[in-house]
Simulated assay, not measured.
Amino acid sequence: MTKDELRACMSLKDRNDRNRVETERRRAALDKERAELANAPDSGAALHAAVADKLAAAKEVDATYAVHAKAIQDWNARMAEFQANSSTMRNPERTHEALVKEQLALKATEERLQGERKTKIAAYEAAVKEANDKAAQGGDRNSDWNKRNEQLAAAEQALLDARRKWASECGDRRFREEDETAIKAGK
């Protein structure tokens, strides 16, 4: 080899060695991160359970609301019966007054149930949003890792190609040792 060819081969070998060390460092970091991602606690099950709890609470209020709706239907039937028979009743004012008090109690219960329902539905929707956000965040971490892994795989392939180039162009060629010593000395 000429001195210039030897210089180019030595430079290529040094560059390959630096790239190999950097690539190995990056691979170790990515492998460690992959292990962390794989061993991360599965918060998906916990989030799913929280969403299920909030949904059950909302359904419970809906069931109570259905019972209340039956009470309103019963009251409506009794009020219709009262209106139909009030002319023949003895003391219809008392019955009317009792029905009006019951109507006020039913309205108060309905307002309370509507407030509870709104609160439970809002809690359920918040739990669903949190679960979706965390699922998306986990997916983002995984896709980010995949992207960096693909970039590192490309860098590893480039390093392999550079090492093959050195092996084919420089590996088995003879050179003068005094040229190598001079190059290392900066001449």
Rank of each mutant, 00 (worst) to 15 (best):
A58L: 09
K59A: 13
K59L: 14
E60G: 15
E60A: 15
V61L: 12
V61K: 05
T64Q: 13
Y65L: 09
Y65W: 07
H68F: 02
A69M: 03
K70L: 14
K70A: 14
K70W: 12
A71L: 11
A71H: 06
I72P: 02
Q73I: 08
Q73T: 10
D74W: 14
D74N: 15
W75Q: 06
N76P: 07
N76C: 11
N76F: 09
N76Q: 13
A77D: 07
M79Y: 09
M79S: 08
A80H: 10
E81I: 00
E81T: 02
F82A: 00
Q83S: 07
Q83G: 07
N85K: 13
S87N: 10
S87G: 13
T88E: 02
M89S: 05
N91H: 11
P92C: 04
P92K: 15
E93Q: 14
R94G: 13
T95E: 08
T95G: 03
H96A: 12
H96V: 02
E97F: 05
A98M: 06
V100A: 05
E102S: 08
E102G: 06
E102A: 05
E102K: 08
L104H: 12
L104P: 02
L106M: 11
L106C: 10
K107N: 12
A108P: 00
E110R: 01
E110D: 07
R112D: 01
R112C: 00
L113D: 04
E116D: 10
R117T: 04
K118S: 08
T119Q: 14
T119P: 08
T119I: 03
K120P: 05
I121T: 11
I121D: 02
A122W: 04
A123M: 14
Y124A: 04
E125Y: 10
E125R: 09
A126V: 00
A126F: 05
A126H: 06
V128F: 09
V128M: 10
K129H: 11
A131M: 03
A131W: 00
N132A: 15
N132Y: 13
N132W: 11
D133F: 12
D133S: 14
D133T: 15
K134C: 01
A135N: 11
A135Y: 08
A135S: 13
A135K: 11
A135C: 09
